[in-house]
Structure formats: structure tokens, C-alpha cells
């Protein structure tokens, strides 16, 4: 039974989870009261997706010290893969039946993105240095080219009529699960191996870490989450186009990450949240948006390179509950 006392204990031992449930309930409630309209809800969903995108990029750039600048490319792979299944291949079975396709499609989108990440990462990460930057950026552009020339994938016109499978509940569950999984990764020996590579690759190697394999693993994992995000994103917008996934899109995630704090999950979350909401408040100055973003990025790098949040983590996010 859910007695007040039990609820109290539960909240005390899982403060973060309880808070998120409360937040979810609040947003749904406000939506029912018509205080929030569907546009607001869409914005909240984008925040959730952007958080996962940014945290997964942080896994590669912040925690492992690599420099991937084409994260939107993996998002595109995931989006087009899953849309191919839900919209093009199966003509979207209506109602709840559609979710039977959508969930596996999202997962497959993630796996496809992970596979491309693996293929890109294998020859590139072996080299170290700045090669990853050039290759990821070029790769993201090549993906767009491929989409643009292939007629079955909508070509330059894009694909419309995508069912709106993504909803608030799904985004909440997806974002919480993804961030939780990535948090666990960081707290495990894999995370420590990553940070060791970031801090001193030569010493990491001498501690018995297969640095190439670890880098490829992290890169693949990051690509997986980006692919899943792509699927959700496509089913929010209901219309995708190669230009949804430009270099600028990748840059936006880099900005969220580095302003928030690259070596911190909390930082990535803060960055993604603030910078998804912010432009909506200043719509009238939209041409100034990137000017302000880039200037902020430069200033943060010059005066606080560890980002707003820094290298810290918000305690409840990383506190470990010991099982006995």
C-alpha cells in the first residue's frame, strides 16, 4: 500500500526520481488546464531530446577528451532509419498499434547510428589528435548528401506525414533512462578508463587500458543515443529534411555542452535546458541568436573553460545507493 509514511521514505531515498515524477505530473496537469499549449509541450519534448544529445556528446568530448563535431549526423541516421520503418515501409499503422513499430524502429535507428559510429571511429580514433574532428564533420555532411540524392528517402524535399508517436511521457522515460544509463557508464570502470584517456592517454595505456577500443566504444555508445534521439525528434516534428541535420545543428550541441560544462553530466543537462528555452524567449532577436551563443562560448572558454557548472556533479545525480 502507498501509505504517506512509505511515500515519504521513498522520496527521501530517491529524491531525484521523485522530483522528476513530480515535474512530469505538474507539466501534464498544466497542459490539462490549458495553461500550457501544445507548442509548450513540444518545447519540453525538445528539451528532453536535446539533453540526451548533449549528454551523449559529453560522453565522447567531455569525459573521453575526444573532439567529435558531427553529432547531428548520427541523429540523421537514426531519424531516417526509424522514419523509414514507421512511415515509408509500413505506412504507419494507426493508433496504439503504431507503437509496436515505433519502439523497435527507434532502437534500430540507434543501432544503425551506432554501427556507422563504429565504422567511422575505427580508422579515425586509432590516429588520435584532431582527426576525429575533421572526419566527423565531413561524415555528417556526407550523410546529408546521401539523403539528398536518394529519392526513396525523400531526397532534398524531405519526408512529411510522419506520425506524431513521440509524446511527453515517452520523452520523459527516454531521457531519464538514457541519462541514467550514461551516468552508470561514467561511474563504472569504463568511465574511469575514459577519464584516464582524457587526462593522459599515455598513462592510460600503461595502466593496461586498450585506449583505441575504449575510445571506439564510447564513440559508438554516443552515436547510439544520438540515433535514438533522431528517431524521437523526427516523430515530434513529423517532417524531416536533410537540412534539419546541418553542421549548425552539430555546433549547437557543442555550444550547449561546452557552455554547460563538458566534464559533467549536470553541466550538459543545464546547458541543453537553458539554451533550448532561451531562444524561445527572445524570438524577436533571432538573427542575434548565434552571435550571442558564439560570443558566450568564447567568453566561457576564455574565463571559465570548465563551463558554467564546472567539473562538479549535482549530488543526487551521482550518489550511489549501496545494495547490501
Amino acid at each position: 500500500m502507498l501509505t504517506p509514511k512509505r511515500t515519504q521514505t521513498f522520496i527521501r531515498s530517491y529524491p531525484l526520481f521523485s522530483g522528476l515524477v513530480l515535474l512530469y505530473a505538474l507539466i501534464s496537469f498544466l497542459y490539462h488546464l490549458d495553461w500550457l499549449n501544445s507548442y509548450h509541450i513540444q518545447l519540453v519534448m525538445l528539451v528532453g531530446i536535446n539533453i540526451v544529445m548533449t549528454v551523449s556528446l559529453g560522453l565522447i568530448n567531455g569525459f573521453t577528451g575526444q573532439f567529435s563535431i558531427g553529432h547531428a549526423g548520427f541523429m540523421a541516421v537514426g531519424a531516417y532509419t526509424s522514419v523509414g520503418m514507421t512511415t515509408l515501409l509500413l505506412q504507419s499503422p494507426g493508433g496504439h498499434l503504431g507503437y509496436l513499430v515505433f519502439f523497435p524502429a527507434t532502437l534500430i535507428g540507434g543501432i544503425f547510428a551506432a554501427a556507422t559510429g563504429f565504422l567511422i571511429g575505427l580508422p579515425t580514433l586509432r590516429l588520435g589528435g584532431d582527426y576525429l574532428a575533421i572526419v566527423t564533420m565531413a561524415f555528417a555532411e556526407v550523410i546529408r548528401t546521401i539523403i539528398r540524392v536518394s529519392e526513396p528517402m525523400g531526397g532534398p524535399r524531405g519526408i512529411g506525414g510522419i506520425p506524431d508517436y513521440t509524446n511527453l511521457t515517452i520523452v520523459f522515460i527516454f531521457a531519464i533512462t538514457s541519462v541514467w544509463l550514461m551516468r552508470n557508464f561514467i561511474l563504472s570502470t569504463y568511465g574511469r578508463a575514459s577519464k584516464a584517456i582524457r587526462d593522459n592517454e599515455i598513462a592510460a595505456e600503461i595502466m593496461g587500458v586498450n585506449t583505441t577500443r575504449q575510445k571506439v566504444l564510447v564513440f559508438t555508445l554516443g552515436a547510439f543515443f544520438a540515433g535514438c534521439c533522431g528517431s524521437l525528434y523526427a516523430h515530434v516534428l513529423q517532417y524531416i529534411h536533410p537540412d534539419n541535420f546541418t553542421f549548425m545543428k552539430s555546433l549547437e550541441y557543442l555550444i550547449y555542452l561546452y557552455i554547460g560544462g563538458s566534464s559533467s553530466i549536470s553541466g550538459a543537462i543545464v546547458g541543453a535546458t537553458i539554451f533550448t528555452f532561451l531562444p524561445e524567449l527572445f524570438r524577436r532577436f533571432s538573427s542575434w541568436r548565434m552571435v550571442i551563443y558564439s560570443l558566450t562560448l568564447i567568453l566561457v572558454m576564455l574565463f571559465r573553460p570548465e563551463g558554467i557548472v564546472g567539473n562538479r556533479e549535482w549530488r543526487p545525480l551521482v550518489s550511489r545507493r549501496r545494495r547490501t
Binding site: R192, K195, A196, R198, D199, N200, I202, A203, A204, I206, S263, N311
Partner: peptide, 11 residues
């Protein structure tokens, strides 16, 4: 070990 210490500084 290394002549110029190579620890994982931020850890």
C-alpha cells in the same frame, strides 16, 4: 612510472 609524472590530474 614516468620521469615527468603522468597522473590522471582531474581524477
Amino acid at each position: 612510472t614516468f620521469q615527468n609524472i603522468r597522473l590522471f590530474g582531474e581524477m
